[in-house]
Each structure stands twice: as C-alpha cells, then as structure tokens.
C-alpha cells in the first residue's frame, strides 16, 4: 500500500483569518441571512419562463367581468401552475407534460344517462353550439392559492339542454379523459382513475357554471383542460373537471375523484368557504398568484349573491 504523508506545511500569516473578521463572523452570517430574506422579499415577480403553447384564436361574442375589475393573472402562470394529476402529482411537471402531450383531436363529448336525447358531439360542432362568451372569474384552489382567469365558453346549461334531461335527473356526473400513452400518472395506484366530478343538477344549470373551451381569447392549453372543461367559480378548483368526455345525468349523488381519495378532506360540494377549514389547513385566506401576502378568502369565492340561495337551509360544515 502506498503510504503518503503530507509534509507539514507552515501556515503563512496571510492565511490566518484576521481576529477582527473572526470575531464578526456571526454578524456576517446574520447579514447573509438578512440579505437572502431581503432578496426574497423584494423579488420583482417577473416571470422569465417558457410561454405556453398558443392555441387557436376564438371569436368571442360578449365579454363580462365577474371578478370586480381585478387584473387577470399572467397567462404563463395560469398555463404552467396548477394540477393535472393524470400527468403527475407535481404541479409544474404535470402542466408541462399536459401542454406538450395531451391529444385533443379527434375529440367527442357524449351526453347520456337520464336524458330524452343522448348526444355525441364532435368538438368542432361543440365549438359552434352557442355564441362564445368571455367571462373573467376568480379561481380558488383548495390548496390555498388563487388566480383571476378570463375563460371563454358558454353556460353548461346550453350543453345539457341539447340532450333534454329527464325529470328524474338530479345530478350530473363528469367523466374525464384517460390517455394511458400520454398520461404517465395513470399508473399510480395511490388514487383511483378516471378523474370523476359531479354537480347537483341545479348547480350545473346555474348561469355562472361554464363549459369552457378557451381562455385569454384562445382555445385551452392542454394543462388547463383542453378541449372542454368545467368552470364553477364559487367552488374549489378541483370541481372544474378537465378534458371532459362524458356528461352523464344521474339520479344519485355521483362519486367524485377527490372525495373517494380522501373523503374527510374533500367533499362533494367543495364550495369556497373561509369558515370551514380543510382539516389540515385554514381556508380563511389565499395567496393570489403574483401577489406577495395572502388575502382574505370570500364566501362562495365572492359569488354568494348569485349562488348562496342554492344552499339555503343546508349545513355547510357538514356538506363541505
């Protein structure tokens, strides 16, 4: 074995830390921490990220602001930050994959179940079903962040009426796309696929409930649920099923994805409610993406005047 011992090397005076500097080492540490915090606090929030794929321009018949003139979030943020867990449990991975991979043509949407006239609509026909409206809605995620998004679409009621729901229909179940070749997380056994969502029929028929086909004047990016998604602005974001393929009218309350996964944490109703905490975190406040400090969360996400009467007499703590 080669044994090599370094010769003792004399320490030069120039190499010894000055006693004064040594004495101030903790100040240096404090200063560094302070500088780090200041840097974090003063950050300009200017995104220098990849642009989402741009969709086709949509011709919009009318525009309505339902977000009290709040400034819409940056398109880059909306198209890159969010959940699409068929792709990944990690937000940014999921959104990136969905934007690149999700196959949106050919696409049909089937309306079935308790209807007089079951329908299968090609996405091209669906886009011409009604004049497209732009609606600026607040969007509140159950995780405690929020955005303001100009969606493009038409009321879901327009779509449902195409199939003429029967009187026995009380709920709407939405089944979303499963593409095993594009969605790697479908292999995960931690949750049960497909992603299902549901609404009570009166919620589904409410004029605020939107069948969205676009945002920011263009067709939806994959990550945001192309080519057709649900937007229910007074509910937590997870109710807004993405890439919808089947709309089924049913008599009983349908099972929903998150409710099945963690029933004590995610309810069927999922109305935005600052007074009912998620078991693991408070819902009293939210971080608006692009803002620094949290702001107060509004009951029904600020749409109480329009929707509170749907829940008259209900215990919203029980029906969370």
């Amino acid at each position: 074995m080669l044994i090599k011992r370094p010769d003792p090397i004399p320490i030069l005076p120039s190499e010894i830390t000055d006693a004064g500097v040594h004495a101030r080492r903790r100040d240096f540490l404090r200063l560094s921490i302070g500088a780090g915090l200041v840097a974090a606090a003063g950050q300009p929030l200017l995104p220098a990220r990849a642009q989402p794929p741009s969709g086709e321009r949509l011709s919009i018949a009318s525009r309505t602001d339902y977000a009290a003139m709040e400034k819409p979030s940056d398109l880059e943020d909306v198209a890159t930050y969010g959940n699409y867990i068929e792709f990944s449990f990690d937000k940014e991975t999921a959104m990136g994959l969905a934007n690149r991979r999700l196959r949106v043509r050919p696409w049909t949407v089937r309306i079935e179940g308790l209807v007089r006239q079951p329908r299968t609509l090609a996405i091209e026909d669906l886009l011409r079903l009604a004049p497209l409206e732009e609606r600026v809605y607040r969007h509140r995620c159950v995780e405690g962040w929020s955005m303001v998004i100009p969606w493009v679409g038409f009321p879901l009621s327009v779509l449902l009426r195409q199939a003429e729901p029967l009187g026995s229909a009380k709920y709407v179940e939405l089944v979303t796309a499963t593409q095993p070749d594009t969605m790697p997380n479908l292999r995960s056994r931690q949750v049960e696929w497909p992603y299902l969502e549901g609404l009570r029929l009166d919620e589904a028929m409410h004029p605020l409930t939107l069948a969205a086909v676009g945002m920011y004047g263009q067709t939806l990016p994959g990550a945001n649920g192309a080519p057709l998604r649900l937007v229910v602005p007074w509910k937590y974001g997870y109710k807004g099923a993405k890439s919808v393929q089947v709309i089924r009218l049913v008599e009983r309350e349908p099972q929903t994805f998150w409710n099945k996964a963690q029933p004590e944490e995610y309810g069927f109703y999922a109305n935005v409610n600052p007074d009912v905490d998620h078991p693991r975190w408070s819902q009293a406040r939210e971080r608006r993406i692009g803002e620094f400090f949290k702001r107060k969360t509004l009951p029904f996400n600020g749409y109480a005047d329009q929707v509170a009467q749907l829940y008259a007499g209900m215990d919203l703590r029980k029906h969370y």
């Binding site: 995104p47 990220r49 943020d77």
Partner: peptide, 9 residues
C-alpha cells in the same frame, strides 16, 4: 426568487 424563475408561486 430574484430572477423570477421559481414558477408561478
């Protein structure tokens, strides 16, 4: 954080 490369949040 300074350069804005940490994503939307």
């Amino acid at each position: 954080a300074w350069q804005g490369t940490l994503g939307a949040n």
